[in-house]
């Protein structure tokens, strides 16, 4: 239990530090947000970006996922099945 209390205290310390930093920092943002964000759809813009600017990372990501899939299957397959 003592260790959990220490863990909690450390987490709180970290939270306090980060929160303080967040609060005290002046964030550079656009001057004015578009009105009524919900009206706009960003799906299309994202789709365009993925298939134009970020197409190579996207393809690499697919390979990563495939690798992870194969790896997971290999690791997790049961010995009994053999």
């Amino acid at each position: 239990m003592i260790s959990k209390a220490i863990n909690g205290a450390v987490a709180l310390l970290f939270l306090a530090v980060v929160a303080l930093a967040v609060v005290t920092t002046t964030w550079i943002t656009v001057d004015e947000l578009p009105q009524n964000l919900a009206d706009q759809s960003n799906i299309e813009a994202i789709g365009v970006q993925i298939f134009t600017q970020f197409v190579i990372p996207f393809e690499v990501l697919s390979l990563v996922l495939l690798g992870a899939l194969i790896g997971a299957v290999y690791i997790a397959k049961s010995e009994v099945e053999k």
Binding site: I28, T29, V30, L33, P34, N42, A45, I46, Q49, I50, Q53, F54, P57, F58, L61, V64, L65, G67, A68, L69, G71, A72, V73, I75, A76
Partner: peptide
């Protein structure tokens, strides 16, 4: 910041998180 690439990265990140979780659970 009115910049779409951050959201694109988020999608990538979610995909990678899935991969990580898959490996971890395996």
């Amino acid at each position: 910041n009115d910049d779409m690439s951050g959201q694109v990265f988020t999608l990538f990140s979610i995909a990678l998180a899935a991969a990580e979780a898959v490996i971890g659970f395996a």
